[in-house]
Amino acid sequence: MNKILDLLDPLLILSAALMGVALYLIFIWVPTETNQGAVQRILYFHVPVAWGSMLGIFVVSGSSFMYLLKKNEKWDRLAVASAEVGVIFGGLMLLSGMIWARPVWAVWWTGEAKLTTALILFFIYVAYLMFRGYFPPGAQRQRLAAIIGVIGAIDTPIIYFAANLWSQAHPPIITGPAADAESALGSDLGIVLLVSTLAFTFLFVFMVQTRYKIRKSEDDVIELKRASSASAMTGVN
């Protein structure tokens, strides 16, 4: 069996190189933001991991849908791999956001729309993973897990709309360099975010790919077991 956790994987090397550049940009190159001080640099971790968790949700719901349509096991493997990595990224998003909010907002948590939505989605995908853990392996587990993946995707806009009605305070999500005109950073911030996001995206893809391969060989083991027990049976006969 070829090694699954391949440290010479080009994706990992690319990610590590970009991560080095990103670290230099974050801690040395980019000037300190005038309103928040050094803590603002948390943003350069928070936004990329938030993006990663969003990517995770997209891939889980997309491949869950494809699984229900095609019943091909590779979609199920992709769904479980990106759910697991997505939950890790999501957890990091929540933690880094909370640690940033403490000095800047003076609270660890508020009931703001994007925060609430992120937390509820995190719980839905944790439930997705737990469901897989509790259910005996087989086609039925894959089918039911895919249903949860799809339901989570359907629920997302409803949760966001509800949370939005409920309250608002999160700084606007930065989509481009000019999104935050009042800040003293502008385009510098955009460049750092871009590099950092790219680095974390490659890391995300690498982790999903690794998890996917492990999932694949788990299936192989089950297959081998079935084959060996079958041959043992014929041996007895």
């Binding site: 737990m130 469901f131 509790y134 259910f135 949860i148 339901i151 989570g152 509800a162 949370a163």
Partner: peptide, 21 residues
């Protein structure tokens, strides 16, 4: 959740986040 081992745990974990809105 009918055929899940820990049904009593699993149902609220699935149900409550989804019905939050």
């Amino acid at each position: 959740s009918v055929r899940v081992r820990a049904r009593e745990v699993m149902l609220p974990l699935l149900f409550l986040p989804v019905v939050t809105p």
